[in-house]
Every structure is written in structure tokens, then in C-alpha cells.
Design a protein around this nucleic acid. Structure first.
Length: 300
DNA sequence: ACTCAGGCGCAGA
DNA sequence: TCTGCGCCTGAG
């Protein structure tokens, strides 16, 4: 079925955002397995002119499947209206040209989003993507060779490294987190799994205010301000989040503060104050604008 | 072979 | 409260 919302699907997929790796692409069709009301469906999406062509297999009702795909690709977001907003500001005007059709690629699985966001910290997009894909292949459930992300209970039991695996199971069979290339983040990931199993109920987070949700996820080891904002934005749709890292710092500094060196924490406050409910989208557009326009090279 | 990028936790100021 | 170091891995 065709969903009439303008989107650049490929751009949205490869934007390197921290909710999930890109879906598997074959002949311009992007496919992955999605949990709908407790059951697994294979979702396929394809660019059809400006719109999205969506098909799925599985027992999900059409209504539920549609709701899910709309959420994942943020299809209810009014992109033209956002472009009017960008056009109304000197500093932002150029961005829509470079990122036309780019939407938030939202998590299909909040737990996956949390763990992959932790994995993304102090990491490269390439290495982060490989690690998460490895984890899915090793410990996720296989549906037609599309793999789910391992659930909370599964991940809690995964060994940390070779040493941990050897002492607990007597042999080493690449069945541990560090062999996925996550490095010292392995401990954070396992601790986080424990916390979401025992202390924090994932389903409570969407009911919270932004501030409350921010403070809640900050308690998780490996989650600082940047990762917390990524989790809230890509995992739970808090669009007022403005994830601020060194790149966003450089870009904001260049566009708004005459290149002056400012603290990342100040950049976050500035972004939230200045852009309000558009903060998350402005952050997304800033990053890709900088990438594509050559600004990023200039700011290095 | 070596250096560096990248956000977070922690020790020490 | 704030500052600066070390963490792990792969790319250059």
C-alpha cells in the first residue's frame, strides 16, 4: 500500500542514527522484522516517487502494521511545515535543500535503541553498525534470515568477554559481547540489561515528561547526556531532545556563536530553547547538512 | 608501527 | 561543582 507522505527513504535509512542499523536493502526494497502486538512481521518499504510503498507478511492486522510503519518512519511529521520553519531562519535556510525528504528513523524496539545508543558512544557509525548487526545474528530470533534484537532477558545472560565465557561455560565459542567489537561498552550493556529487567520499566518512559525521562535514562551506566537524548528522540519520540556531541557543537558554534568554543552542555540548552519541538529535527538536519555541504570538512 | 577520534565514568581539584 | 584523563577499536 502507498502511504502518501513525502520521504527520501534511502537518506532516512543511511542517516546513521542511533536507533538501529539500516534495514536490509535489496533492489531498492528495505526489509526487516518488526514486532507488532507481540507477533513478528516482515516489513518491506520502497520509495515510490515521493511516497512510501509498504508491504508486510505476518498475522498483524493492517491497521496495526500501518501504525507501526508510520511510527518508524515518522510519517505523521509535517515535513513541508518544517521546511517553512527552516526557510524562516537565516542560519537554517540552506538545510532543507541538502536533506530533502529526510525523516527521523525511529526505533522499532526501544530496548534495541537503548543498547545501540550505548554502543554508539565514543564510536564510529561503521563500527557501531557492525556490532549491533553481529549481536542480532548471534542472539536474536531468526525470521527468514532477518534477525530481531535480543530481548532483555537474553542479553543479561550473555558473557562479557572470552575470560567470562571460559570461566562460566568452560570453553570459548565467540559467544560474548566483546567479540562483537563493543570494547569496554560490554559492561555497560550488560548492566543496562539488568537495570531494565529489575529497576526501570521501559513501558513507563513514554508516560513521562521529557525532563523526567531524561533523568531516568541518565541513571543507566554508559548513558550520558548525548546518549540519553538519542534514546529519548529515536527510541521514544521526544522531539524536543537536542542530542549534542562534538559535531553539533562545532556546527552550532559556527552558525550561531561566530565559531567560539562553547561547552556541549550549553549547546544542548541552546538547541532546546531555540528550536523547541523542532529541536530533534533541527539536530538531524544540521548534521546531514554539514556532511553534505562540506561544512564538516571545514570545521575539522 | 603509530596516532587519533569519539562520549562517558571516575578521580582529584 | 568542575576538569581532565583513560577506556577500546578500527581507520588513516
Amino acid at each position: 500500500m502507498i502511504i502518501k507522505a513525502p520521504i527520501d527513504l534511502e537518506l532516512t535509512q543511511i542517516s546513521g542514527q542511533t536507533s538501529q542499523p539500516p534495514w536490509i536493502c535489496k533492489d531498492n526494497v528495505f526489509t526487516d522484522v518488526v514486532c507488532v502486538d507481540g507477533e513478528y512481521s516482515i516489513f518491506s518499504v520502497r520509495q515510490s516517487d515521493d511516497f512510501l510503498d509498504f508491504t508486510y507478511t505476518g498475522n498483524a492486522t493492517e491497521k496495526a502494521a500501518l501504525e507501526n510503519v508510520k511510527k518508524i518512519y515518522d510519517l505523521d511529521f509535517d515535513l513541508p511545515r518544517f521546511y517553512d520553519y527552516l526557510d524562516g531562519h537565516d542560519e537554517l535556510r540552506e538545510m532543507s535543500k541538502f536533506c530533502n525528504g529526510l525523516r527521523l528513523f525511529q526505533a522499532k524496539d526501544p530496548f534495541e535503541c537503548i543498547i545501540s545508543s550505548i554502543c554508539s558512544a565514543n564510536n564510529s557509525i561503521k563500527r557501531w553498525t557492525r556490532s549491533i548487526s553481529d549481536m542480532k545474528m548471534k542472539w536474536g530470533r531468526n525470521f527468514n534470515d532477518y534477525y530481531t534484537f535480543p530481548d532483555i532477558e537474553t542479553l543479561q545472560k550473555i558473557y562479557l568477554d572470552d575470560e567470562d565465557e571460559l570461566s562460566k561455560c568452560g570453553c570459548v565459542n565467540d559467544n560474548n559481547l566483546k567479540c562483537c567489537g563493543v570494547g569496554y561498552r560490554a559492561e555497560y550493556m550488560r548492566k543496562a540489561s539488568e537495570i531494565f529487567s529489575l529497576e526501570i520499566d521501559l513501558s513507563e518512559i513514554p508516560k513521562m515528561s521529557y525532563d523526567e525521562a531524561f533523568e531516568t535514562v541518565l541513571k543507566v551506566p554508559g548513558v550520558g547526556p548525548k546518549v540519553a537524548d538519542c534514546i529519548l528522540l529515536y527510541g521514544f519520540g521526544f522531539k524536543e531532545a537536542f542530542p549534542s556531541d562534538v559535531w553539533i557543537k562545532r556546527i552550532v558554534s559556527h552558525l550561531y556563536f561566530g565559531g567560539k568554543d562553547i561547552k556541549v552542555e550549553k549547546v544542548r540548552e541552546f538547541g532546546m530553547e531555540e528550536f523547541g519541538d523542532y529541536a530533534g529535527y533541527v539536530q538531524l538536519y544540521m548534521f546531514h547538512y554539514a556532511r553534505k555541504s562540506g561544512l564538516m570538512e571545514k570545521l575539522k
